[in-house]
Write a protein that binds this DNA or RNA. Structure first.
Lengths: 245, 245
DNA sequence: AAGACCGGTCGGCGAAGACCGAAGCGTCCC
DNA sequence: GGGACGCTTCGGTCTTCGCCGACCGGTCTT
């Protein structure tokens, strides 16, 4: 029964290094990065990054795609992202946060709204989660699930559930929010909802992982969630958009 | 945004060693082991185990309790067990399985029914999951949750849901079964159900993680799940009970 | 076609850490 | 109380691995 141990250890080793961890955390934005970008983000020489990237690909954590002289890397799939999230959510708060004005502004924007691999996170993500629960569209009395009213709500929004049911991915999952320390929605529906809000033009992607509520989106989203528009107002210092860490 | 990386790496390091991985996998049976037992299970000297155990405790993966000259260790909580499961479920099949008769018999018993930290796993665990889904007691069309009929089913079984709702732990979760390569039920309800079936005398704990269906439990469980008793019959070579790996 | 650029491979350096045996401390049993 | 037992601490050895700079091959630009 202990025969899995070497494999488990080998797998855990992939994340047991600051450089590789930095790479995986950077890729949590859900996009494909080039090897060079990841090397800069991780603060190591390109040669070092190249080696580490190969290990991560071999280990099944990352998927790669070569285009011309570039090598694009992304997390292998949503389950890997979930795993990295689970692990990252378990570690204590970051050591000593950067407190420059520029970083503070970017941090505020990210704390307000960002993507977490492929779903919505930050204060806005938690807010959506709470509102859905409060209005009885979501139920967690016997597992985390959409109520019949919740299914209607999705339909009215134009969000089709059928394709999501066909996917192998769990429909709904909790994801611990780093900044809020509370849960927001992940899973197939969490991802679809985020994508759909962007399709509707209610949200737009900012720099890096940051997400912004559009002028037309704010009242629309507030109405859909049964909230006042003021409840969705971002803090004043976050309106300039976020920068990459 | 990459400030978490050292913490994440440090945490992953805890499982990135064959000895520590073996220890955690052994503790997946949900019981408390002594330091010496774990040293033998991991195949290292007591001094080595002592050091590694301290690291695991410091890292928050394990909880310890000292009694006299013994030091009892267990996984810190269910979320840690879930995490280890998630990781172990991701690694490929074990390298070269032990094929002695004794081991084969123990393996068959474990493959049929065992606990996975605190819930039911193995063929029986998957069977229960499938039956609940098939009878409409469980629903995953919009998240994994009990249906109203499922709640009644729990009530008839004498399984109280109220205390589970109060717990911070997710009610229901999928857990990938190592031997079946399919999902069985985890989460607060998965654990409660397993404990309740043992309370009812339908199941008894065997050696190690093994679980056996009792003579009276087999027809009772079959009836509760709407199955034929024959559907629950274990393979002939598994009836002798399982041994510890 | 020349030059810039991206990325991979190789050799070597240095630090981290997994392991053991020996010795010491506290607990339990006869 | 004496001896067995469980566990921990310490010193030392040895392997692993992350890192870099240098060099090379393939790709895109001008």
């Amino acid at each position: 029964m202990t025969a899995w141990a070497p494999g488990l250890a080998q797998f855990a080793t992939l994340l047991a290094d600051t450089t590789r961890a930095r790479i995986c955390l950077a890729l949590l934005d859900g996009r494909a990065w080039t090897a060079g970008e990841l090397a800069r983000a991780a603060g190591v020489a390109p040669s070092t990054a190249s080696e580490q990237l190969s290990r991560l690909v071999d280990g099944g954590l990352l998927a790669q795609e070569r285009q011309g002289r570039h090598r694009y890397l992304r997390l292998a799939d949503a389950s890997v992202a979930q795993l990295v999230e689970d692990l990252a959510g378990r570690v204590s708060a970051p050591p000593v946060p950067d407190r420059s004005l520029r970083a503070a502004r970017a941090g505020a924007a990210l704390a307000y709204a960002r993507t977490c691999y492929d779903h919505l996170a930050g204060r806005l993500g938690v807010l959506v989660h709470d509102a859905l629960l409060h209005r009885g569209l979501l139920d967690r009395s016997a597992g985390l699930a959409l109520t019949p009213a919740g299914e209607r709500w999705c339909a009215e929004l134009g969000l089709l559930l059928a394709p999501l049911r066909a996917a192998r991915r769990p429909m709904l999952r909790d994801c611990l929010d780093w900044t809020e320390r509370r849960t927001h929605l992940s899973g197939a529906l969490g991802a679809a909802l985020c994508a759909h809000l962007i399709d509707l033009g209610w949200l737009t992607r900012g720099v890096g992982r940051a997400v912004r509520l559009t002028p037309s989106g704010a009242p629309a989203l507030a109405a859909a969630l049964g909230l006042e528009a003021a409840d969705l107002t971002p803090p004043a210092d976050a309106v300039t958009g976020g920068g990459r860490a």
